[in-house]
Design a protein around this nucleic acid. Structure first.
Length: 237
DNA sequence: AGCCAGGCTACCG
DNA sequence: CGGTAGCATGGC
């Protein structure tokens, strides 16, 4: 019997959707599935990634590119960059402005994201393989709360819970938060509610966020949110 | 056709 | 401070 609602919801989502295998990496996609739509798991139950600096950099690029943008569009941009051998901080900086903007065009906001990528790439090189702090990341123009936490949790395996639009949508619908609560308020609530989890917190945070996204894609993309949600009943305790 | 997408910054009162 | 316009393409 689980007495913590947030852990119970996690357990319900995991039982419903299975391990998601986030963060998506081009070179670590499950081979037995052909698309990346709902239900797609990337490298399920493998928490060893990223394995090298360029894989960290790929996560960082993806975290910028996916701002208010579907992953499918982001993946096309990453494939374009990969074809230019540019999932590499030094190669990125060698690309002309036109070439980089063309490569990331599919991910939208390409003028903004071009600048954001320039900023964080220089920052990443200056890190020289060390781990950034949250404060340092937030000082970069183009990195806000969610992007910083995504980078820390998935690229650097730091214990930071990610809050995104889907998290707010689901948990305000279920009545656990108000949709006007601040990012940090919601983040701290999750981290507090999950603090006694007896297991690997990094893996929990990684999996929980991925499951929230998967669930929201299935039930919270179009208004009215949550209606016809078959597994919602399990959440109502 | 039109709404939606795994946000962020700048600027407003 | 909190609230919001603008950013832009692609998928369904």
């Amino acid at each position: 019997m689980i007495e913590n609602n947030f852990l119970e919801i996690y357990s319900t989502l995991l039982n419903e959707y299975g391990f998601q295998g986030w963060w998506p990496l081009l070179t670590h996609k499950s081979e037995n599935l052909s698309n990346n739509g709902p239900g797609f798991a990337y490298h399920p139950n493998d928490y060893s990634l990223p394995k090298c600096e360029n894989e960290k950099f790929e996560i960082i690029l993806g975290s910028i590119l996916t701002q208010n943008t579907s992953w499918q569009s982001v993946e096309q941009a990453l494939k374009n960059l990969n074809n230019l051998s540019a999932i590499d901080p030094f190669k990125i900086l060698e690309l002309s402005e036109d070439n980089l903007k063309t490569a990331i065009r599919s991910a939208g906001y390409y003028n903004q994201k071009y600048n954001y990528i320039q900023n964080i790439t220089k920052f990443f090189i200056d890190l020289n393989k060390t781990t950034p702090t949250r404060k340092e990341l937030l000082e970069i123009k183009g990195v806000g709360n969610e992007t910083a936490d995504s980078i820390l949790l998935y690229a650097y395996k730091k214990e930071e819970f990610i809050v995104d639009a889907y998290t707010k949508r689901i948990f305000s619908y279920l009545g656990y938060i108000n949709d006007k609560d601040s990012y940090m308020t919601i983040k701290k609530l999750f981290e507090s509610e999950l603090k006694n989890f007896r297991g690997n917190k990094i893996e929990l945070f990684q999996e929980y966020h991925a499951l929230i996204v998967e669930h929201a894609k299935n039930y919270y993309s179009k208004k009215p949110y949550g209606i016809n949600d078959d597994i919602l009943d399990i959440f109502k305790i």
